[in-house]
Amino acid sequence: MDQRTVAAADQLGKVYGTGQAAVTALAGVSARFQRGEFTAVMGPSGSGKSTFLHCLAGLDTPTSGKAWIGGVDLGSLTEAKLTRLRREKIGFVFQSFNLLPTLTAWENIVLPLSLAGVRPDTAWTEQVIDAVGLADRLGHRPSELSGGQQQRVACARALVSRPEIIAADEPTGNLDSRTGAQILGLFQMCARQWGQTVVMVTHDPIAAGYADRVLFLADGRLVDEMARPTADRVLDRMRRFDAQAVH
């Protein structure tokens, strides 16, 4: 594995259940993610995108294959080390349910830092909060925020500890195009200026257009890869999927 590779998947497989009820969510996906690279993962619903992201980021354990982060095989880590790795090297944005309801927006954002016992870097934190446009909502509880605002708080949380890898599962799913663009711009900046590796699952070709490359999953397999995508090319590629699916 070369110096620039931050994370890698090696024939990742995941089967839910056993016997008759077994569902193959991932059927051997290999990919590398380099420092400063912004990757979008796309594919039809149920194709295994979320599962792939979870296994890659050490949230879930694959049933076959390996996931590497920073040259370490996640399968070889103890629970405690894996926890530390998640805290220090990975920032997550989930598809839903991202925030602790009892904490304010601000507390949710700095949660990974509080857990690590680190003081937030004020300048960077302010920059992140400005970017997600939440400066005036910091004292509110998640229940007092809209779905999109909650999602932006989650993004801010993923960014605030400046993790090496940012894993986001449909972060812009609930957002209007302007706010979505703000967040995607932020991810882009993270990758380009700060050298963070961003992996983002999305259904939106426009969102994928912000990425450096797109991985296409279907039925748990990596079926295609596109470098320097644009929204139009992605849309085009996806139409071909649909066409295949029809036949």
Partner: peptide, 16 residues
């Protein structure tokens, strides 16, 4: 459970 899992996901240890 989901709150606790979320905490764990963002790096809280079991002990925490």
């Amino acid at each position: 459970a989901r709150e606790h899992a979320l905490l764990r996901a963002v790096g809280a240890e079991r002990r925490y």
